[in-house]
Write a protein that binds this DNA or RNA. Structure first.
Lengths: 95, 95
DNA sequence: ATTTGCACGTGTGCAAACAGTC
DNA sequence: AGACTGTTTGCACACGTGCAA
């Protein structure tokens, strides 16, 4: 089964909310992006956050990220390298 | 100079804020997106919002949108049609 | 403003290959 | 020995994209 589908936009407004909210720090299913820039830049920034989100959500498992995102594992490597996503950072280290 | 760089994420949290906030209704420079879906869907949703934002910001001017987004005008038509963006809705009607 | 044709680059899937782990 | 994961590469084909009309 899946996670409880949390909504966390309020966490990014940096203001009127108690610090006791059940908000994940890295993997947020919804995120804000700046649209006021060329498509290439905006799209790349979006995709980078997209993959970082899935990597964090799957603890760096390429196989799972590939399944969740609908890409081939082989292509995922090329994509992440091209987007500048660091792979060695999501190798599930925190205990 | 540019616009006063407003941040409007709080407007989407639908809650604790007075209705007197200076927030634009359509063209918001930052917007939230759901990352928890296949790349194709997430990317298309992002690009659709992206172009709707620029269309609203430029009052439907394809030339200006093309310049702002860094695409050819000719390709912009194909892109918008493919994304399902309605062109006749942003032909600057509201005074 | 809008469409189409064409050429080129890029995205993407598939197969193959090798290392590592269990 | 298998089977599974991670990683890279080559190749073919579809698609994105710019340019001219």
């Amino acid at each position: 089964m899946n996670e409880p589908s949390l909504t966390v936009e309020a966490a990014m407004t940096g203001g009127a909310m108690p610090p006791s909210a059940p908000v994940l720090l890295g993997p947020q299913p919804e995120q804000s992006f700046d649209l006021d820039r060329p498509l290439r830049e905006a799209r790349d920034a979006f995709e980078k956050s997209y993959f970082e989100f899935h990597l964090a959500q799957e603890n760096g498992s390429m196989t799972r990220v590939a399944e969740k995102t609908g890409l081939e594992r082989t292509h995922l490597y090329r994509k992440l390298k091209q987007l500048g996503v660091d792979l060695s950072r999501n190798k599930r280290s925190a205990a």
